Amino acid sequence: MVKNKKILILFLGLILFIVLLIFFLYFKNNNSINKNVDKNNENYNNKESENLGKINQVSPYSYKENIIRAAIEQKTAESCSRLLFGEDKFDCVFRVAIANRSEELCVELKGSTREKECYDYIQLEKVKLEKNLQSCLNLDLNKETQMACLINYFSDKFDINICNNSFNNDEDYKLLCESIINHNIAIKEKDIKMCDKIELENYKVDCLIILNNQPKDSDGDGIKDSLELMYDTNPYDKDTDKDGLTDFDETMIYSTNPKNPDTDGDGYNDRDEVKNGYNPKGEGKLK
């Protein structure tokens, strides 16, 4: 009986030893793995920091901006969470999300003030791509966001009737519509006087800036007003000397005097000479 007890104790001791040995080997191996992982992460982060350092040396942007730009290009917000903190991290994730129109990335903003803004922006961008007026009006967002959608919709429109037909009950939207479309028409027709019809100041100013900076051809004869001043011709009259040849024809084609209807003084109108094949600047046929 005593002998059996000793054997049992030895057996239990052996089992306990084996269990302790297994635990020892497990924790030793796990610790080694963690060290390798930590070392790899450290090497990776050091390498990434080194790369960012190199970028920062040649880039005009800040450390944060470089991370954001790289994340946008890679279409992932992983580096935002790993390398930035607090509001900088949320700002990074937000910009990556909207740049890639990714609602999945908006999820990473949960709990921040940017979460709703992220979803709203992506919804707006999707609707803007549709280029549909009713879709803009159906946006379940604030009025400012709806206006952003409408601005995009009106950007290539020239029919002022759209405003009267669509916004009889909303003066703000109607005013926005009329201002943008009048702006578009003025720029297209290069009519600086139309800028005065634009009620919203920012569109009126933009219209004036664009048209004042463009080389104008007020009479549409093909010669810019600045050149007409040089030729001493009338920038508001296609045919300054009323001989039937436009100022462009006289200065650019036949080299006749745009201020004299009979350049060579032979008693025949410049246009008549050209029409009949004669040289309006002297004797002989037109070459």
Results as ranks from 00 to 15, higher is better:
residue 119 Y to W: 02
residue 127 V to M: 02
residue 154 F to H: 08
residue 150 L to D: 03
residue 87 E to H: 10
residue 119 Y to G: 02
residue 150 L to I: 02
residue 64 K to A: 00
residue 153 Y to P: 06
residue 50 E to Y: 15
residue 130 E to P: 06
residue 64 K to G: 00
residue 110 K to C: 00
residue 61 Y to K: 09
residue 37 V to L: 13
residue 62 S to T: 15
residue 43 N to T: 05
residue 69 R to Q: 11
residue 87 E to V: 14
residue 81 S to C: 03
residue 69 R to S: 08
residue 54 K to C: 01
residue 157 K to M: 13
residue 154 F to Q: 09
residue 70 A to Q: 11
residue 58 V to F: 15
residue 38 D to E: 08
residue 140 D to H: 07
residue 41 N to A: 09
residue 56 N to D: 05
residue 80 C to V: 07
residue 116 K to G: 08
residue 122 I to K: 04
residue 73 E to F: 15
residue 124 L to R: 12
residue 118 C to F: 05
residue 140 D to N: 14
residue 80 C to H: 10
residue 55 I to C: 05
residue 134 Q to K: 13
residue 128 K to M: 13
residue 95 R to V: 00
residue 156 D to K: 11
residue 124 L to T: 11
residue 57 Q to I: 13
residue 141 L to P: 03
residue 86 G to V: 01
residue 97 A to L: 03
residue 94 F to M: 14
residue 127 V to A: 09
residue 156 D to T: 14
residue 50 E to S: 15
residue 101 R to S: 14
residue 128 K to H: 06
residue 56 N to S: 11
residue 142 N to P: 03
residue 100 N to G: 04
residue 146 Q to H: 02
residue 121 Y to S: 10
residue 146 Q to S: 02
residue 157 K to P: 00
residue 94 F to K: 13
residue 138 N to L: 07
residue 66 N to T: 04
residue 146 Q to V: 08
residue 56 N to Q: 11
residue 107 V to G: 01
residue 55 I to D: 07
residue 141 L to A: 11
residue 40 N to E: 04
residue 76 T to Q: 12
residue 89 K to D: 01
residue 112 S to V: 06
residue 59 S to D: 11
residue 152 N to V: 03
residue 103 E to A: 04
residue 49 S to T: 13
residue 103 E to R: 05
residue 146 Q to G: 06
residue 39 K to N: 15
residue 158 F to R: 05
